[in-house]
Nucleic acid binder design. Structure first.
Ligand code: FES
Ligand code: FES
Lengths: 153, 153
DNA sequence: AATTATCCTATTGAATCGATAGAATTTGGG
DNA sequence: CCCAAATTCTATCGATTCAATAGGATAATT
């Protein structure tokens, strides 16, 4: 399961990407718009900044804005930064490999063999879906919704 | 991440499937062979039994054995039974759907759109990999390992 | 009856999750 | 230069989950 923290992080970045302005957005504004506890969001944005996704400006007229373009940020990047590796077991993680203490032989471990496939399938989706991709699909969905509404009325 | 509990469950079922005998296997034996804390394994096996994967026999000569054949048990079945739904967000779970309280509209939620793809990719692997499949692949890996060893010597 | 095993209930310590409090720091404007 | 507005930092909190253990109750075989 995604933690709420990661979900909030994705929500915040998607929000900032949709704005796509030069003017920074205040934490308080972001928190209100997306229904995220402000103090919690504070910590999350700071962490995202430290990972290089955002940059910030203090004082009056300050706030957060994207550092990279939406095409350069993948969903996998953000989730890894906040929740850690995607892999279901540490021995198949590309970004944070660790030996499984309880398994005798990595090469012949059935769990590892299967979980490698799972990790690859997840990474294939998450590393090839950028924030820009998501925004496009959201727009499509919004259009489809409008058409539905017109049909009903 | 898989919990240790789920990992132990998979290990135990793979062990029982490899034996594939009519004679039941004792918890103590299983715990020793796979380096699993015995009392913890007790609880896990009981849970697997309640989910219909195993059946047990009490008293002398007793122990656990598979209830279904290795071809009938998928990795996904076991993981869902122990760790719960595969889906990264509740709104895309097939087995345990729940609305996301914090999202405004499910149809136009970018996180949902992406996570649906992730869930499907994971389920595609885990629901189409049976215990029998895993055992086959482990055997192949063991043969490959033997060949390696011969080459080196 | 004795032995061998699973079954059940309860509890524990540690870690993680989700969130909050309060003060420090930086920046821009008057 | 001072004030207000914003981020930044430190610290702590309660609740839940994770991983494991303890101790006895129950059932089946010999
Ligand atoms: S070696 Fe990592 S799961 Fe077995
Ligand atoms: S509706 Fe489930 S993630 Fe948004």
């Amino acid at each position: 399961m995604l933690t709420k923290k990661a979900k909030y992080a994705l929500t915040a970045i998607l929000n900032l990407a949709r704005k796509h302005e030069d003017a920074p957005t205040r934490i308080s504004e972001l928190a209100q718009e997306e229904n995220i506890p402000q103090k919690f969001l504070e910590a999350i944005l700071l962490e995202l900044k430290k990972h290089g996704f955002l940059h910030s400006k203090k004082g009056k007229g300050g706030g957060y804005m994207l550092r990279k373009s939406p095409e350069e940020i993948s969903m996998g990047d953000i989730i890894r930064a906040i929740d850690g590796p995607l892999a279901p077991v540490p021995c198949v993680s590309q970004s944070a490999y660790q030996k499984c203490s309880e398994c005798k032989d990595e090469r012949t471990c059935g769990i590892r063999i299967t979980m490698k496939d799972v990790r690859d399938a997840m990474a294939d989706v998450l590393d090839n879906t950028t924030i820009a991709d998501v925004l496009r699909r959201v727009e499509e969905a919004e259009k489809a919704k409008q058409i539905e509404l017109v049909k009903i009325s």
